[in-house]
């Protein structure tokens, strides 16, 4: 390809990336490290230290880790079951797991209010069965449930893709060499599915850590997550410096999770683009 053509081809994309991805991120760093007059300060970062915000940050970390672990525990067996199905059924079954995403995501989370309320659908069913009722709406448990529900497909699809790519011959070889089911899974299948597990973990952890919608809808404005704190800084308080400072702290956690992912999977860029 000649040079002139190439500049015309990647020019627009690179300019777009610079203008709307790189420079905006630099803006957050700038706002986060300066005060209203533009002078350098650490105070916006230190704003995270107030008891109320620390509480929100710690709760966010606990809930998002919890949601990630439960998603993994739920999605892995599911991906195993799906990966063993006949190829015809697989297309149909995976579509079934993607279809819910076509209903507006805010409404889907909102529907959990109707399901979980004191006299909601679930409690009425439990009542009919003479089982103890579930009172978790407006508590952190409801938020965790919302996270698991909303992000489960993000965990399922990468693991499923990784399992699909495993060569059946490798598994058969393990059996031929005398490994039992458990050994084959633990020594062959699971390690080979690791890239999917790792990318599933980041795909769930980051959105769960930073959500403000799920906590808004299912926490009944009683429970604040770090996403809510930052969102309020921008839309209600209007202090962009503090908001950016808090975002910078949040980005540290996002960066850590990205680095962990890169550590386990060096070629992540190549891999995610060749799904």
């Amino acid at each position: 390809m000649n040079k002139k053509l190439r500049i015309w081809l990647d020019g627009p994309y690179l300019i777009w990336t610079a203008a709307f991805i790189i420079i905006p991120l630099i803006m957050i760093v700038y706002y986060g490290l300066t005060d209203k007059t533009g002078a350098f300060t650490w105070s916006n970062i230190l704003e995270m230290g107030t008891p109320e915000r620390m509480k929100a940050l710690i709760l966010s970390l606990i809930l998002s880790l919890m949601a990630t672990v439960i998603c993994l525990l739920m999605a892995y067996p599911l991906a195993l079951i799906l990966s063993r199905m006949k190829t015809g059924a697989v297309g149909f079954i995976t579509t079934i797991f993607i279809i819910p995403m076509w209903m507006n995501s805010l409404l889907r989370i909102l529907a959990w209010q109707t399901l979980l309320e004191r006299n909601g659908v679930i409690n009425q069913i439990l009542g009919m069965l003479n089982l103890p009722k579930l009172y978790i709406i407006n508590t952190p448990y409801a938020i965790a449930l919302g996270m698991i529900y909303d992000f489960l497909p993000f965990m399922l699809l990468p693991i499923y893709n990784a399992l699909q790519k495993i060569d059946v011959n490798v598994i058969n070889a393990a059996y031929d060499l005398g490994a039992n089911r458990f050994q084959t899974f633990w020594k062959v299948i699971f390690p080979l599915s690791m890239p999917g597990v790792i990318s599933g973990i980041t795909m769930v952890f980051v959105p769960a850590l930073t959500t403000f919608v799920i906590s808004d809808f299912l926490g009944g404005s009683k429970v604040l997550l770090i996403g809510n704190v930052i969102e309020q800084q921008f839309t209600q308080v209007g202090n962009w410096n503090v908001g950016s400072g808090l975002s910078l702290v949040l980005m540290v956690f996002i960066l850590i999770s990205m680095l962990v992912m890169q550590h386990y999977d060096k070629d992540i860029g190549e891999r995610t683009t060749s799904l």
Binding site: I21, L25, I28, I230, E231, S247, L250
Partner: peptide, 9 residues
């Protein structure tokens, strides 16, 4: 990246 960070930036 987190959507909230992209949105804010």
């Amino acid at each position: 990246n987190a959507e909230i960070v992209t949105g804010i930036s």
